[in-house]
Design a protein around this nucleic acid. Structure first.
Lengths: 193, 193
DNA sequence: AAAAAGCGTTGATATTTATCAACGCTTTTA
DNA sequence: TAAAAGCGTTGATAAATATCAACGCTTTTT
């Protein structure tokens, strides 16, 4: 179960983990299973855990005044689920994270993560890379959102993330793109002609 | 000139810089002045520098097929200007960064930054914090963009970043928010009633 | 096996936002 | 100091997108 995580870390660090380092990591991450729809994080709580997805799919979303959900993240295998804002600032989160499919996670506390970053150089490198990548992805998405029409945004997304298109229903993709499910339905109809 | 930067780093690290560490940092960062409208980074080039703004204001933007500029970042004193995507992935940037006002920068190469992160723990901590914050800010903005109307987005922005409202003209703010200058003008007119 | 919930689609209509053109005012440039 | 460029505003109109309601189909729940 932890093999996925260890392999992932090695892939994103300069040098491979030693046995001792592996032991530290395995000790920090506990397996956890979530059934479809179960929460990993609920609005109003401070995010104290970080989850590495071994198998399954999750989503992160906010709920507005009208009760409408807005998807801010979709996660599948080898993604990290957590609300960084809440975890870093120690403020109550504005988001919910729940399982879209039955999901297997490896979960560490934010405190243990900080500890590992200090003690295991490769782990520090990996998280730094993750931080940078998250930012880059977020940045691209933002640029796409302020620059492009809904149609172009969908095309771009479908081209770059076909796995998500297959895995999540259209109404979640629509929400992720910041449009309604009806509009996405019409965009797809147009595009298929 | 370097005092601003050193103070900034100390503010964002666990322990203060030693004299040796300060020397390393000062050696890596060279002062640079940009006149209004001069480029710091131009589309198509790989981003090889990172700039810390000591005085002045800058903007980062993309230009679409129709020649329309889309502001992705506005920078003022104590902000870091660069395109992380290009610097990290070593790909040509899609953005331009130029001076909106006459600006004084401290500039380091990306290579020197990486070197400092290794050699100076406080510097590493500071950059890690910056990465996290950038992501958080980007995340919030994204959430606001997919969840809120133009009007609400403007209100939120004006509340949270009054300095920017004062410092940059309305048409840049509009572009930053992903709306046209005419729409922003009308939103403001409405709001003032 | 029946009922309920989830999903995608379509039509009719309303709302939001963009586009285009023009104007007055201020600041910068020549 | 004259001309040009930059900026914000307004009006008329067009385009993009949302909203509301309904329907058929599939999957899940009872």
């Amino acid at each position: 179960m932890h093999q996925n995580l260890l392999a992932y870390i090695n892939q994103h660090a300069a040098s491979p983990l030693t046995n001792d380092e592996e032991a530290l990591i395995v000790a920090a991450f506990r397996p956890k299973k979530l059934r479809k729809k179960q929460y990993f994080l609920e609005e109003g709580y401070v995010c104290k855990y970080v989850g590495f997805i071994v198998k399954g799919a999750m989503r992160q979303y906010s709920v507005d005044d009208k009760g409408v959900e807005h998807i801010v993240h979709l996660y599948i295998e080898n993604y990290w689920a957590s609300d960084r804002e809440s975890a870093v600032m120690l403020t109550p989160t504005r988001y919910n994270i729940d399982a879209w499919e039955d999901t297997e996670l490896l979960v560490a506390t934010v405190a243990d993560m900080l500890d590992l970053i200090e003690k295991v150089p490769s782990f520090g490198q990996m998280t730094r890379l993750m931080d940078q990548r998250s930012f880059i992805v977020s940045q691209r998405r933002l640029n796409s959102t302020i620059s492009n029409s809904a149609e172009k945004r969908y095309e771009e997304f479908a081209d770059n993330h076909p796995q998500f298109i297959q895995r999540f229903p259209q109404h979640l993709i629509a929400s992720f793109l910041g449009i309604t499910k009806e509009t996405l339905s019409r965009i797809r109809k147009q595009a298929s002609k």
